[in-house]
Design a protein around this nucleic acid. Structure first.
Length: 270
DNA sequence: ATATACACCTGATTGC
DNA sequence: TGCAATCAGGTGTATA
């Protein structure tokens, strides 16, 4: 379930095990995920100590005292497992710490990625170069969003999924934020009034923050062998709820564009 | 520049 | 019960 909030809580879970830890064993179990895994990844990380864990958009960053940063993306199905009971076909990277903790990057569909960059140059990592602001950061405001959307004829839903406009939103949270803001997903991105953009900014912040809190409340589950997580799904207003009742009393509809489902309420989203 | 389709993969669910 | 079709949280590339 990896959009921004899931990566955020994943990094928080990793931090509890990895922060300050020495990487005693680093074992890639295949040569590629979506892209090739650096061939020198094992050699560069083994014996290093983790000095930082952070997130940019949907990417997690693990920095070491050797000046390297491991960057991971979870794709559609990726997750980290902590102290798994057994290792299976989809455990693609194993990391054992100096204190005997075991981490596994598990990703059945292999849409995720693993890469290694020099820490002083991580901002130049290709996926980050044209990326928009962090939605929970100070650079995401009605003014900056208005600028990013100016003149865009594309739908607001497509625009918010564009990581160059704002970084870290995916299908779920775009649907949720548009519902919260009362904006129809099909509305032309460049034609939304400033007050409504302000409400959209607040809605995006609110839904992401609530999801992070919900993820955070299950953090102890990271220590569970199976690594299952509950996350935010019980709080969805529209996503995955076709035919159900919107908080406004309307009925949630589903439409498909570009092969992806959009859930919305035609009564309160205009 | 932008819009759409498609590609990459496996697994869970749905429908017959 | 079995099996095929459909769907899933992402994003890079090709094609118009």
């Amino acid at each position: 379930m990896p959009e921004l909030p899931e990566v955020e809580t994943t990094v928080a879970g990793l931090r509890s095990v990895l922060d300050g830890a020495m990487l005693a064993r680093v074992e890639p179990r295949r040569a590629d995920l979506r892209f090739p895994i650096p061939v020198d990844l094992r050699q560069r990380l083994t014996g290093a100590t983790v000095t930082s864990l952070s997130r940019r958009a949907k990417y997690g960053l693990i920095g070491t005292d050797r000046g390297d940063t491991l960057i991971f993306h979870l794709g559609m199905s990726g997750r980290w497992r902590i102290d798994p009971a057994e290792i299976g076909a989809h455990d693609h990277l194993l990391i054992e710490t100096g204190t005997g903790r075991l981490l596994s990057l598990n990703d059945p569909r292999r849409f995720g990625s693993l890469d290694l960059v020099r820490s002083d140059a991580w901002a130049g990592y290709a996926p980050f170069i044209r990326m928009g602001p962090e939605p929970l950061g100070p650079d995401f405001t009605p003014a900056t969003l208005a600028r990013a959307l100016k003149g865009k004829a594309t739908s607001i839903k497509a625009a918010l999924l564009d990581q160059r406009v704002v970084a870290g939103l995916g299908n779920i949270y775009v649907c949720e934020a548009l519902n919260m803001a009362g904006i129809a997903p099909t509305r032309a991105a460049g034609k939304i009034t400033r007050p409504r953009l302000a409400l959209l900014v607040e809605s995006i912040r609110a839904v992401l923050s609530a999801a992070i809190v919900a993820g955070g409340s299950t953090l102890r589950d990271y220590a569970r062998p199976d690594g299952e997580l509950g996350y935010f799904s019980k709080q969805w207003r529209v996503y995955g709820r076709e035919g159900a009742t919107c908080p406004c009393g309307g009925v949630v509809e589903r439409r498909v564009d570009g092969g992806r489902s959009t859930f919305f309420c035609p009564k309160c989203q205009k």
